[in-house]
Amino acid sequence: MPSSAAQADPIPANPIPTDRRLALHRTMQTIRATETTLSRLFADGEIPGFIHLSVGQEAVAAGVVGALGPRDSFATTHRGHGHVLARGVKLDLFFKEIMGRAGGICGGRGGSMHVADLSLGVLGANGIVGAGLPLATGSALAHQTRRTGGVAVAFFGDGAMAEGALHECLNMAALWKLPMVFVCENNGWSEFSPTSTQFAATLDKLGAAFGVPHRKVDGNDVAAVAEAAAEVVEAARNGGGPRILECLTTRWHGHFEGDPQRYRNADEIAGLPRNDPLRRSAEALLAAGVEESALAALVDAVDAEIRDALEAARADALPDVDAAFRDVYTPTATLTAGA
């Protein structure tokens, strides 16, 4: 069930420079503060539909996305806010999208489950469990065929391990030696059920079956994730074929906001903050000599950004129906080809 650092592979002694750690911490703080705000907005009825929060998993998003270069791409999941925010999607466009406003990054067409920014190589969150895996596989195929030098990452949860797409894509990626990383955010829960009751194998064995190297890290230790991600991304980029990075992490909120989580043990939930990736990161920064006031200032700065973004989202217009129709197909002026 919930994972612990003890199960992770040993971390090589390769300390990350403090300024880099501070940047990762700021990314995590942005994700945490944004999602905490979203949780409140959802409870207040300001967000329609479903939202799935990744509170407790911020280190994976910050560490993995932080290891990507500008040509790289990734496909994420329904619990994908963190990855998208880590990639630098503009906060106001993000809030507008999730609140269903015209100026949202997707014009209010997609919402929380479909946040995408193609200009940043973000192939979208996805409402279908496991559906991002083939998208990332195809993206890696394009990187390889076009020789872009890019790597594609497929984020997926442990629940998606049971999807056929993972097995098919591991096979394809291995056959074609694609520049691709399969990043599993293993929070122990397949929606409302413990993954131990859902999946008979383990990811390392699955990888081994296809000859895809597997690395497991403490997904709540951002430095460990960052180091491991850098290693697997560069291996994939350099023609080493696909890699699996399994990040053991924790899901604090329900499968979706409003899920009372009656299926979870109260002790497990109560114990989650002890393994808080943000607290662990802050402690490491303090130990490395960063001032407490600097961390407090970082929190304040992030909060101010979020306040501004939220204000802009609330002031933004609602989407126009006619404009939405125009996005079903690419405008057709160019459709007649040939003589």
């Binding site: 949202g104 990054i105 997707c106 014009g107 209010g108 067409r109 997609g110 479909h114 995408a116 920014d117 193609l118 200009s119 979208g124 939405a324 125009r326 996005d327 079903v328 197909y329 690419t330």
Partner: peptide, 8 residues
């Protein structure tokens, strides 16, 4: 994809 990503 085109629609839900707002024509991106």
């Amino acid at each position: 994809a085109r629609f839900m990503f707002g024509g991106q």
